[in-house]
Amino acid sequence: MDYKYIEQLIERYLQCETTIHEERILREFFAQDDVPTHLKQWQSLFAAQHELSQAHLDADFNKRIMELTSTRVVTPRRITLYQRMRPLFRAAAIVAFAIVIGTVMNNPGNVSSESQSDMAHAEFVLESTTSAHPETYSAELVESAADSTSFIKVQTQEDMPMP
């Protein structure tokens, strides 16, 4: 082996002018035992690089990781109260909507077929009482209708999901 060549390679290595191939030559040269004394100091560098580059894990490492990951497919994840309740918000919105629709349908203005007999009975009672005291009862009826719709409005806003 021509040591002049190795000395040149070391010089060029330190100047970052060596190729990957030339650097490999250096490491392999210093990996052998009989290195001339004047180059000994570089042996600890290049031989150590060589030894470290050979370090590797056991073959069964992959198997161990695959086993670990398959047993941990369901990883515990923190769920906030908001995330947990999220499906319920939609249900609550639907219920609130149904209540609004139901109230509108039951309004004395648009009489639905199911409550027609009830309404007829109520109208009969209403008529008999309002005819006795016309001013008092008609005013009360309007007031209560206004109250029930405004109550529903507040209710639906409370049940809306958070933005």
Binding site: Q43, S44, L45, A47, A48, Q49, E51, L52
Partner: peptide
């Protein structure tokens, strides 16, 4: 010796 130089380079 190997251990020494590995420690040094690391």
């Amino acid at each position: 010796e190997q251990r020494e130089r590995l420690t040094t380079i690391c």
